[in-house]
Design a protein around this nucleic acid. Structure first.
Lengths: 114, 114
DNA sequence: TCATACTATTGACAACAGTCAATGTATTCA
DNA sequence: TGAATACATTGACTGTTGTCAATAGTATGA
């Protein structure tokens, strides 16, 4: 989960989500948060995320076998994690390389730890 | 989200869930985590949780109106949050009183912040 | 005991999500 | 240019989920 390269993180990725224990959530904010947690609510995606987080960078092609899912399914899941801002991908040559966005994980952790 | 009363928390609630960035998750662990995140993946439940977390204790009857959902739907959602270990309920008289389980929220936060 | 009030359960339905085979797109290399 | 490779998209199918009306359960108070 270390991060040698400096990558720019979209502001919206970090400027998000007030903690849960301080006043009622707006419907809008609740919807945004629900999208993030929804991305984390599938076992395959959680294992995928943990695989990516354990390396510095992981190729899509390296996920198929350990997860035991078809290529389209892998593609589907990476997309959902990416749309939630939890991972980010870069295409280099034929390969798609994924890495986690630690800032985003911290945002989510902060939601819950007050 | 403060907690005047001492409540005993089931061990399994706290002894759970290794961080995401350290080695691949087992299928079993991924399933457990997915259940928790699944409970957090609905806007109504997130607003519900934030309402409960903002008070010390909240009656089921006090959730219907702010969430704009029917009584059976409220009951459905409290059950899912409770099964995920995120809230705990106590029946007193005719009323069901809910409070958050801060230890559980911290567990989830720890999954992501390592 | 009867009526009232709060919650849980059941059943039904529409919307959504996970999965894969088939196909399309883009990149590399001969 | 053509073949091979990695990934994305589409379409179809199945299973799950959010929702509520209707009903059942349980506690209170007259």
């Amino acid at each position: 989960m270390s991060h040698p390269k400096t990558i720019t993180v979209d502001e919206a990725v970090v400027n998000c989500c007030s903690p849960i224990g301080v006043g009622a959530l707006s419907e809008l904010e609740a919807g945004d948060m629900a999208q993030i947690f929804g991305a984390l609510s599938d076992p395959a995606r959680l294992r995928m995320l943990s695989l990516i987080a354990s390396e510095d960078e992981v190729c899509s092609c390296a996920l198929e076998e350990p997860l035991g899912k078809s290529q389209p399914t892998i593609s589907h899941h990476t997309r959902i994690l990416a749309e939630a801002g939890l991972i980010t991908g870069e295409k280099r040559g034929r390969w798609m390389w994924w890495r986690v966005v630690p800032e985003r994980l911290k945002v989510v952790a902060r939601i819950l730890s007050e």
